[in-house]
């Protein structure tokens, strides 16, 4: 991962900790692995707050909605989730994974 992305992470992890400390429910979603052409590398992440607000990114924007809804589920039941998104070339443009590819995302609650 590049340093620019790490700085990016920094911010997300600091924000996640700050949200949690001020009493909000928080979950983290992190790119665990990618195959083919995927817009965001391993380690890219989202921090999601209980009210649905989020920062960061795990894709070009196409799967964030689905990830946020699973994250809200993880806040409810405390269980981790691994979400797999596979995208065919024809579909790729529509969902924003520019050249097709697959992406696997780990979702966990901040306790």
């Amino acid at each position: 991962m590049s340093d620019a992305q790490m700085l990016d992470h920094d911010d997300i992890l600091e924000r996640a900790a700050a949200w949690k400390e001020s009493g909000d429910d928080v979950a983290l979603a992190t790119v665990v692995s990618t195959w083919g052409s995927s817009p965001r590398p391993v380690g890219s992440r989202l921090a999601i707050r209980g009210d649905g607000q989020f920062i960061g990114s795990v894709s070009g924007g196409c799967i964030e909605g689905a990830v946020v809804s699973e994250a809200l589920g993880a806040m409810e039941d405390g269980k981790t989730r691994v979400l797999d998104f596979g995208v065919t070339d024809e579909m790729a443009w529509e969902v924003g994974l520019a050249c097709g590819g697959e992406i696997s995302i780990f979702v966990e609650r901040l306790d």
């Binding site: 790490m6 920094d10 992890l13 996640a16 900790a17 949690k20 966990e108 901040l110 306790d111």
Partner: peptide
């Protein structure tokens, strides 16, 4: 992730 872990991680990075 535990809050203590994320805080220790942020400390290390800072």
């Amino acid at each position: 992730m535990k809050l203590t872990t994320i805080k220790a991680l942020n400390d290390a990075r800072n």
